[in-house]
Design a protein around this nucleic acid. Sequence first.
RNA 1: GGGUCUAUGGCGCAGCCAGGUAGCGCACAGGACUCUUAAUCCUGCUGUCAAGGGUUCGAAUCCCUUUAGACCCGCCA
Length: 526
Amino acid sequence: MSGQNVIGRGTWIDKLAHELVEREKSLGRNLDIIRVESGLGASGIPHIGSLGDAVRAYGVKLALEDMGYDSTLIAYSDDLDGLRKIPEGFPDSLQEHIAKPVSLIPDPFGCHDSYGMHMSGILLDGLDKVGVKYEFRRALDTYKNGLLKEQIHTIMLNSSKIGQKISDMVGQEKYQKYLPYFPVCAQCDKLYTAESIQYIADEQKVLYKCHDAEIGSSIVSGCGYDGEADISKNLGKLAWKVEFAARWAAFDVRFEAYGKDIMDSVKVNDWVADDILGFAHPHHVKYEMFLDKGGKKISKSLGNVLTAQKWLEFGTPESILLLLYKRISGARELGFEDIPGLMVEYDELEDVFFGKVKVDNPAKLVKLKGLYQYVNLLEPPAEPHIHVNYRLLVELCKIFRDNREDMVAGKLREYGLNHDSHIISLIKLAGNFADEFGKQEKANVELDSGMKSALRILVDKLVTVQESDDIQNVIYQTAKSNSIKPKDFFIVLYQILLGTTRGPKIGPLIRDMGSKKVTDMISEHL
RNA sequence: GGGUCUAUGGCGCAGCCAGGUAGCGCACAGGACUCUUAAUCCUGCUGUCAAGGGUUCGAAUCCCUUUAGACCCGCCA
């Protein structure tokens, strides 16, 4: 590995940006500005995978800038997408809006101008929170302003050729029969009920008829309207199989990552861009979807969605960025329980970056340092933070629920760790994690008579001691003098106090919890 | 039917994408710290890195074949 050249900062992001630039050079395209794009769904609740698409594209933008090029990330919200299913937790009143573009549906929560913007807003907020900068664009404006009209026109003229090619490439037959353009019915606002009948090239209009259509397993009724859609200003949208290509050409997009679920669409769009629109398709990278812990695809329309907002209750923005930048390939099952590991891993990376931990392999050192820099969006801090193991914080937070910040901070001081505002914020995150996932069931503690009498004696004795060492000794002595194995006695105490069979050293623990509270808890079991 | 990914100590996984002594977390066992038990430190665990072949001085890592599992596409966007 020694004699090899390291590209950029040694990460997959650098490699990708490098490939992209090499390709652009061989195509002979202008490199004054290199646009990268990320598409945001606007019909379902945006989960961490949707965020990942944009975050990774942003990483490529950073790498391009690092190489000396100008670059922009376009965050494109597909908000003419039709509502097909009401997400869990959303009101049933949305039923009447099924099949309408999400940007024409009122926001059921009243905080955005439409349902679509509400959804996009959640994602954009997530991007803001992790520090990603982007240029926002949306389908509604794109079509209303006719930004794709040239591409739509060309696609419509070639629709039969495209339909045949789609059939050849991916086996989907429908576009041999239908035009790849879905008008929004001017009378009822519905998208999938309006069927394109004919394209009138001279007028650049699509004739359509609104009729009943099947969406998923249910029938959505059309209104019977016969209309015409002007592709330069009326609402409607291209089918996915051709829409990306139109957008790439119109916006001059040079890079877009995609999830493997839309692999076929990308393949077709690349061909459309190259062969129909005469625009060399963007460079791509494919990534695996995040799956939930059961190995199922995280569905955007289901309720238990792993959003950036929820993640940030438990982990830092860096923990999300680390997740998304550490690698791109490989299927991954993801859950909130991965947060502690990522929190710890970030600290380890920081140690590597600041030279506190040695890495033998020089190439790996470069790569790890590079990863750390990307996780900090290429603006790493000048000084490392004080590190406290997140898992330890979670354990401490499980024990201390009242007055948590002070109690945990005090505990850290005992361990000889200074703390600062950063640590305080970590305690909050770890505390949220402990509250959400660290629920300890009140174990049914079975006590025989010998154990009970020993506990009674202990309760009486505990009142008389203050120091943690004394408490520790009292417990030990009480066990011994009652012919109980200290091991068993301690286990019982941990079960009563923490619901576990083990825990922190019990003397200091009891002192910290307060002997009165402890004796009360013990007494409940007697 | 088409495609992608995954396969590494008991369990969960990292390392692979730019080859160089096989690692982490958890679990378990033992030990050090005074007898207990958090933290910390040490040791161990049955790892032929799915199987076979190839390239190489050298392969968990690159290439090919095979097997098993998962997911995606073949509604729609």
